[in-house]
Design a binder for these strands. Sequence first.
DNA 1: GTCCCGTCAGACAACGTTGTCATGTAGAAG
DNA 2: CTTCTACATGACAACGTTGTCTGACGGGAC
Lengths: 341, 341
Amino acid sequence: MTTMLDVAQRAGVSVKTVSRVINNEPYVQDALRERVKTAARDLGYVPSASARSLRSRRSYQIQLISHIMTTPYVHAIQAGAMQTCQAEGYQLLVAVLPDCGDDPVDAFRQRFEPQLATKKPDGVILVPPFADIDGIGAWLTQQGVAVAKIGAQSTLDSVFSVRIDEFAAARDLTSLLVEHGHRRIGFIRGRENESATEERFRGYRSVLGDHGLPFEEGLVTPGTFDFASGVEGGVRLLDRADRPTAVFASNDDMAAGVIVAGHRLGLVAPRDFSIVGFDDSAIAEKTWPALTTVRQPVLAFGTVATTELIRTFEGAPGASEPPNRILDHCLVLRDSVSAAP
Amino acid sequence: MTTMLDVAQRAGVSVKTVSRVINNEPYVQDALRERVKTAARDLGYVPSASARSLRSRRSYQIQLISHIMTTPYVHAIQAGAMQTCQAEGYQLLVAVLPDCGDDPVDAFRQRFEPQLATKKPDGVILVPPFADIDGIGAWLTQQGVAVAKIGAQSTLDSVFSVRIDEFAAARDLTSLLVEHGHRRIGFIRGRENESATEERFRGYRSVLGDHGLPFEEGLVTPGTFDFASGVEGGVRLLDRADRPTAVFASNDDMAAGVIVAGHRLGLVAPRDFSIVGFDDSAIAEKTWPALTTVRQPVLAFGTVATTELIRTFEGAPGASEPPNRILDHCLVLRDSVSAAP
DNA sequence: GTCCCGTCAGACAACGTTGTCATGTAGAAG
DNA sequence: CTTCTACATGACAACGTTGTCTGACGGGAC
């Protein structure tokens, strides 16, 4: 293994100078800088992460924390984060913390306090539902870890966030249904206590209001963002005489569930009912009919959050970016919506 | 931050003794051992990963390497690996290397050689298609990294592997179709140069042979394990007068594609054709009809591989386990198979 | 010519742990 | 009673890097 000492000897300088060059510190003459760089390249020198982080108290690691790893949403974020991490020379760590129970902040601390002592990541990326709990972001910041939230607005100045305008996106989908003549539209909610759930519901109600359509409590049913809850919700909404002509499911997995629920009841989409999802996750184009939905730039969430984190602790020289960033969503028209009867 | 020195002072011993206790080394009296443990607990001591790995040249990291992170198969493995990592105090790192090109071994080296210099993971988990390339496993072993392969047999004594009996599983599925009276069964292959592709195909042919059914070249069509290739393959097989009465897709994503292909041609499964998948991935129960398939214990692949890796470099005291481990698969009967017309 | 300041480079210590070696003790074997 | 061995503990150095401090040099202001 080649160390800084080897490079230093080859370049005829001290180790400290090599260190300065490697870390792009000032006060090294250009000629020397070049000589060191050449020597390092010749020897194939790569700094030791352990030594580095032992001495400098930085870990060059970014951690993605989620309550579950097996959902396409988290997956895509991970892919984006990893892309940026690899490009910037950081390591991506993943961690899950399922079932937070009553006191998620405390559960979170219990789980991660020891880990912070062993090795503190330079930054943490939080996704829903953790992103929605302010206490978690606050605690991490206080522990000296940079935080980026995905999919939820940040109330803290120190915490960066990236998301889409969920309200507007939900409006787009609902408007599409209304434009197709649907006047009674069922709605399946997401997990409770998440901003996405509320925002999407708000968007739905607001479009109904704009068009003077009545809001019917009975057309709204709970869900948990997963397939099974979509099937259940779909059955609740469709298995009755006065069933709605369209259903807005708060994400694609649940929308896929509604399609299956329909089949169980002998109803085929989009002939017998229209259905829209949300997220444009992988399943959206694998169902029949393929789902009309809203695309979230999930991969970009990952890259933007990671880039922003790195910018933070590399000592951002430029202007301080606004801590809340909103990316564009886009309506994806497929085959699950048809004109109302 | 509390260090070993703090613990040592509180327990009235030397740092070395604390180190011995923390690492479960011998030659410490039980009484002392207890005193040190208590002191450590009282102070909430957690060893510093950086210092540890700098000195001991172990990283306490396990890396999962795949060509893509966004498939349910890899996802489940990751979940399993993470579970074990968290329990054993290891960190799970993830890395992707897409598009290996002509010389995958070289591409692999190019990508990971620098990383090994910075920080060498204690072990690496390889999934297909990397698991199928012997040169990669050999290179990593030679670099001093423990290797576990998933889903492919290991030819090296030093490399552990875990998988199911793909041949037997494919036989189970094919037999099921034959028992339902199907005599002309289409087959969609997986990515080429992967053992899973060959084994599944072999299983299919072998059952045909057992039952004296003719093997028709025209009923076999290529695929790449992804949804789109399933749609294409499905169209090729089903869009003709002499179409098969059943299709064996080499995984669930492609099977879902065949269902969609059928819809495009006005054919509905399982009324007009039967279809089976492979893997029992998430999509298998989200299609209509839900897919009859074979369940691979993918999560267990992750936990077993990780456990085995850790056992390796923690200096396995017990007998040396056989390096190839085969887990049980199971046939999952759902709704996509019906009796042949 | 003197003083000061900005630039540039190196010597040295420190980060928190583990490997190596030396030393001490107690019991068994001779 | 001595010698040997196995067990127990500690002192010290080392891992590879970066932070701190010190010093040399050159140029501009007085």
